[in-house]
Amino acid sequence: MSWRWMRYLLASAMLFAAGCGNNKPAAQQIDGQLRIGIAFETLQTEYWVASLDNLRNELNKRNAEIVEVVADGDANRQLEQVQSLITRHVDGIVLVPKDSRTCVPMIRAANKANIPIVLYNRGAATGAGPHVVVVADNRSITRATVSKMVEVARQRGRKLKAAILIGDLGDINAIERREGFDEIVAENPDVVEVVARIPTEWNQEKAFAGITNALQANPEIEFIFCSSDFLFPSVISALKSANRYLPVNDPNHVVLGGFDGDATAYGMLKEGYLDADGVQDVQFECQQAVDALYKMNRGETVDAVLPDPGFVIHQGNLETDAERMWGSQVGSHK
């Protein structure tokens, strides 16, 4: 690059700088109105889309100005986006981090700028600095879900071979769900024996390849727990390929369980293919997250962890509890 060209660039930069004396955010805020940043790691699944919609609703109720960013699975990009929100002088940040570790510098940056930050649905590693987490009790919801699956399996009167689709191990939710599964399996050695642990890294293609291979290597698998409902399409495809996708009343039915409570799981429950599903209360979590931000802006103290107790939905309580399952309120089920 020649110096002449550099001069052109420098001149352009000076003109640009001269034309912009205003260092304040451009958007006009109404007095008392809060500007809230929402930073999502991904919108890959229905759960995140439903969460974003609920957060928007909660913030719109309070007449907040919303600034949204989505990192599309890239933690580095998410850090850049959070820093961008900070330079835009937001009054609070709702962060859905990629994992528990990479969000640490984001929390630190928000703390440094005195901006309240709420982690939605995923906690941070220890030593991250002050923040609030709204999170489902993954371990206990998974324990309850797998217990229900074991109850169904016990009726077969024999030991079933099981598989689990594990999420991204950098995600504390995935780890807690795996641990909840392992605990119940360990408590019921006479009912279930795990023969396949399939790492998915929250990726549908990897899930499909993994469950297909597992079913080929262990055709006798009759018990599958899916750490997130968004992986169900992969499980259904693999089971259909193996002619194993059968309704709950079929003697050869594969006992199925999942976690989230999305529309796919609701459809499977309604059609009689799914045995149990751990449900996160999206509306409750979003309300808690927004409430926490507003309280912190008023200088009030908020608990560091705001738990969502969740619940298990199964064939037995589907009729009574379907309305509480957020998946029954989205998409074609709306």
Partner: peptide, 22 residues
């Protein structure tokens, strides 16, 4: 350079010190 000139009217925040540093 052309892009910058075109986008600036819609995005004057881009010229703030914080954004330039970012």
């Amino acid at each position: 350079a052309l892009y910058l000139l075109c986008i600036y009217p819609f995005c004057p925040e881009l010229a703030s010190t914080g954004q330039v540093l970012a």
